[in-house]
Amino acid sequence: MTATDPTTSTTPVATPAPEAIAGDGGIRSYHGQPVLKEPVWSWEIPCYFYTGGLTGASSGLAFLAELRGNDLLARRAWAAAMMGGVASPLLLISDLGKPERFLNMLRMFKVTSPMSVGSWILVVAGGSTPLAAIDAWTGWIPGGKYARRTAAMFGLPLATYTAALVSNTAIPVWHKAHRMLPFVFGSGAAMSAGAATVALTPPGAAAPARRLALAGAVAGAVTSELMEHRLGEQGEPYKQGAAATFRRVGRVAGAAGALLLVSRGRSSRAAAVASGMLLSAAALSTRWSVFKAGFQSASDPKYVIGPQREAISRGERRGAARREPRI
């Protein structure tokens, strides 16, 4: 038996697509086709990552400012929390397409599904935040202090569960970062709440918000850097395409906002507003970068097959295939 007889060959004559031949870096793949499906989530979801963090951390800031006796700051922070708290469910419903589809989320409570757990967190936090905010302004809500406590407490997981949600998927750039990503999101939430409150509050009363915004900015830069470092080659999507653009915008806006806040934020209301907006843009842009990196990681088979194959060749994993018969 040697070669196939050319006269009986029915192979269609096609120019081999370059990506079809063995793929990147010696990775073998099926015609360069992706192994995973990209998510179907649209623009609402990265925006929700931002608004969820904004609401969560702003409620905490407002609650603690009340304890410290800074009521002016507290009321402005409750306003920021309420904006995020109203926007969040609207964004999710818009992504699902129909309002009644959100109700299906509450059919059960499943710890194996961060989306299920998160929906309940959002119901509690999103429900209590407007009550807390209205109460802080008017004192009209019966039992308002419980609403404030609830909003502040549930705000914390609201700010970080979305990282658990995306890391509990097969997408390498998200899943392999599951230890760091919640800290990236938590830092972003601190920065978002600080920035929004800085922009809404007269500088004289806004010292805690400034500290929060700056701490969030620094923590965000450090944790993102650490995450990408630990991802190694798997972190490549952050350096390409839309993910890289959003990452750059986030860094530039973050650095500019932080500098402006440190230099002029205490003395000038206009500077405070401008830096608050820059830092908010940075927080939003960073979430978009994470979001887009996931799509890029899913669509290229080399990120999926490469590390799996390497772990098998290093003998760390057995893989799912076996050549030795077990009889």
């Binding site: 192994v35 969560g56 951390a57 905490g60 800031l61 603690l64 710890v111 194996t112 961060p114 914390l156 997981p157 700010a159 970080t160 569960y161 990282a163 658990a164 890391s167 509990n168 998927t169 097969a170 899943h175 599951h178 230890r179 760091m180 990503l181 919640p182 800290f183 999101f185 938590g186 939430a189 601190a190 929060l212 701490a215 969030g216 923590a219 999926v304 097959i305 799996q308 194959r309 772990a311 098998i312 994993r317 057995r318 893989g319 799912a320 295939a321």
Partner: peptide, 29 residues
Amino acid sequence: PPDPVDTRHELGSIWSAAGAAALALGAGL
């Protein structure tokens, strides 16, 4: 995929990280 994995096997560390980050956010606030 040569080595498909169900991520539930790491759900414990996923939730722990999210919980720790929530606490860290509280401490930061």
